[in-house]
């Protein structure tokens, strides 16, 4: 049931994903979520994901070695997804020192493997920065869990968010975001097999309810 309705391949499922900023004020913690994919528990009555032809977005991600095209051709195709985020930039948390910018994510898998999580930020389809993290499996309730907890955001991303937030109009922010993408590739560290590949694209949320998203399967038919 998960495979056609959530971000899940045959071997790995994304359970949660969030990018946030956090600060302490008057001994209280304030957390603002820029983007967030929460836990879900779909049933067979829920609709399956819509599809997008992967060729429509190849140029939005690095087309060099290790880019989306090469990865997709290697497969497996059921591991490839696109997430369109409507990011919430309406934070009233003050910027500056004492603010923590982080990314947390959680996955569950079917195998006791070590995963490598590569996050590539692309500007105009060219990679500008990459973070690679290694995670080990923890057995929990018969599943292998992988948790990246409060991974610090890089300087490039923090500066990017600062600049974006200070643009006066939302259409200007969307114009910048049109050429900003992130590719996350989770692979088996030993075999290099792709377990999950998520292409992120962005707009600014106009909702009062915070960050929103749509998930698509990437197909080639």
């Amino acid at each position: 049931v998960w495979q056609d309705r959530t971000i899940a391949s045959a071997k790995l499922r994304l359970l949660e994903y969030s990018a946030f900023m956090e600060t302490q004020r008057d001994r209280e913690t304030y957390k603002h979520l820029f983007v967030h994919i929460g836990p879900s528990n779909p049933g067979y009555s829920d609709p399956v994901l819509e599809s997008i032809d992967v060729r429509q977005i190849y140029d939005k991600f690095s087309e060099k070695k290790g880019g989306l095209k090469e990865l997709y051709e290697k497969g497996p195709h059921n591991a490839f997804f696109l997430v369109k985020f409507w990011a919430d930039l309406s934070s009233d948390v003050e910027e500056g020192s004492g603010v923590f910018y982080g990314v947390s994510s959680q996955y569950s898998g079917t195998e006791n493997v070590t995963i490598s999580v590569s996050t590539k930020v692309c500007s105009f389809g060219k990679q500008v920065v990459e973070k690679v993290e290694t995670e080990y499996a923890h057995l929990d309730g018969g599943k292998y869990m992988f948790r990246i907890h409060r991974s610090p955001m890089c300087e490039y991303m923090i500066n990017f968010i600062h600049k974006l937030k200070h643009l006066p109009e939302k259409y200007m922010m969307n114009s910048v975001l049109e050429n900003f993408t992130i590719l996350q590739v989770v692979s088996n560290r030993e075999t290099q097999e792709t377990l999950l590949c998520i292409a992120f694209v962005f707009e600014v949320s106009t909702s009062e309810h915070g960050a929103q998203y749509h998930v698509y399967r990437l197909v080639n038919d």
Binding site: S205, H209, Q212
Partner: peptide
Amino acid sequence: GSTVEQVPMRKRQLPASFWEEPKLT
């Protein structure tokens, strides 16, 4: 470096939902 002119996302073959921000119910 130079940047290559890309086809705007609005001109690509994408589902209608791609442009519809979900509303919380």
